[in-house]
C-alpha cells in the first residue's frame, strides 16, 4: 500500500516552543487515519503545517509524491488536500450553498473578462457548480431548505456538516478533519461517523482525523498516530494504541499506566 501523505522529521518551532518535533508520519492511501494526543500536543499545528498555514522549520512533507514545503494554503488545496477547522470557520454572512461554492474556487476557471462578458462557459460553469454544491449539501445531510440560509444562522451540527461539504467541494484526495464531532451529542456523533466512513468508501477520499472522542477513533480508524508535546510517541493499529503504555501515560500521567492496565483488564477503556 502506498502512502498519500508522508512527513519526515517535520518540525515547527515558535520561538523557543517546539510545537511539532521531528515527526515522521504517514497516511496510507484510502485509509482512515487518526491523529490523537492530549490537549496542546501539537495536532492542530501539525495540520496547519501540512496545509501551508505555517512554514515548517525543518523536515519534508510529501503529498502524492510531491513536496508541499513552501506552498501557500491555496496551492496545497489545489494539490488535493481539503480541511475543516477545529473552531468552525465558515463564511458566516454567506449562504450554505455559497460556502460550498467558495470551496470549488480552485476547480473553477472563470476570469474577470469571462465574468464581465458572461460567456457561455462561465454560465455553464456557474450552473454546474451550483448543482454540485446542492448535491454536496445533500450528501452531508444538510436539509435542502437550509441551503439558502446564511451559514451563521445554521444550527451547530449543520455548521459542522457544512464545513465538511465545503472541504469536499475542493475536490480533495485527502481530507483533514480537525475534531469534527467536537460539541456534538452521541447521536450526532454516530451520524457523523457514518458520514466519514461513507465519504471514504463512496468517494475514495483518504481521511486524516484529529479527534478526542476515543470511542469514535477506535471504531473508525485503521491506523492511529499519537502525538505528545509535539513528538510522535506511538503509531499503529487501534488495539495496539489502546494498550500502549506511553500513550496511557501521556493521557493520564506517569504511574497511571499500571492502574489503567488493571482497569483495562476489567473491560474499561483508557480515555
Amino acid at each position: 500500500m502506498t502512502n498519500i501523505l508522508e512527513t519526515r522529521g517535520l518540525t515547527k518551532r515558535f520561538g523557543g516552543l517546539t510545537a511539532v518535533d521531528s515527526v515522521d508520519f504517514s497516511v496510507a492511501t484510502g485509509s482512515i487515519t487518526s491523529l490523537i494526543g492530549p490537549n496542546g500536543a501539537g495536532k492542530t499545528t501539525f495540520f496547519n503545517t501540512v496545509t501551508g498555514l505555517y512554514t515548517p522549520t525543518s523536515g519534508t512533507i510529501a503529498f502524492a509524491g510531491r513536496s508541499l514545503v513552501g506552498l501557500k494554503p491555496h496551492e496545497v488545496t489545489a494539490a488535493g488536500i481539503g480541511r475543516t477547522f477545529q473552531n468552525i470557520r465558515l463564511f458566516g454572512n454567506m449562504t450554505a450553498v455559497e460556502n460550498v461554492m467558495v470551496g470549488m474556487h480552485s476547480r473553477m476557471h472563470a476570469n474577470v473578462l469571462g465574468i464581465l462578458a458572461h460567456s457561455a462557459r462561465v454560465q455553464h460553469e456557474e450552473a454546474t457548480a451550483r448543482a454540485k454544491a446542492h448535491a454536496l449539501l445533500d450528501a452531508v445531510g444538510l436539509p435542502a431548505q437550509r441551503a439558502d440560509d446564511l451559514s451563521k444562522n445554521l444550527p451547530y451540527g449543520d455548521q459542522r456538516r457544512l464545513e465538511i461539504a465545503r472541504a469536499l467541494a475542493t475536490d480533495p484526495e485527502l481530507l483533514l478533519l480537525d475534531e469534527p464531532t467536537a460539541g456534538m451529542n452521541p447521536q450526532e456523533t454516530a451520524e457523523l461517523t457514518q458520514l466519514i466512513r461513507r465519504i471514504r468508501d463512496e468517494r475514495a477520499i483518504t481521511i486524516l482525523l484529529i479527534e478526542h472522542d476515543m470511542k469514535l477513533v477506535m471504531e473508525i480508524s485503521e491506523s492511529i498516530t499519537v502525538l505528545d508535546r509535539g513528538a510522535k510517541i506511538a503509531a499503529g493499529l487501534p488495539h495496539e494504541i489502546r494498550s500502549n503504555e506511553q500513550v496511557i501515560e501521556a493521557y493520564l500521567g506517569r504511574g497511571a499506566a499500571s492502574m489503567a492496565h488493571a482497569h483495562a483488564r476489567n473491560g474499561g477503556e483508557p480515555t
Binding site: T51, H74, F91, A167
Partner: peptide, 11 residues
C-alpha cells in the same frame, strides 16, 4: 469573512 479559511479553501 475569514481570510485564513478563504486561503484554505483554495483562494
Amino acid at each position: 469573512e475569514d481570510e485564513l479559511a478563504a486561503g484554505a479553501m483554495g483562494i
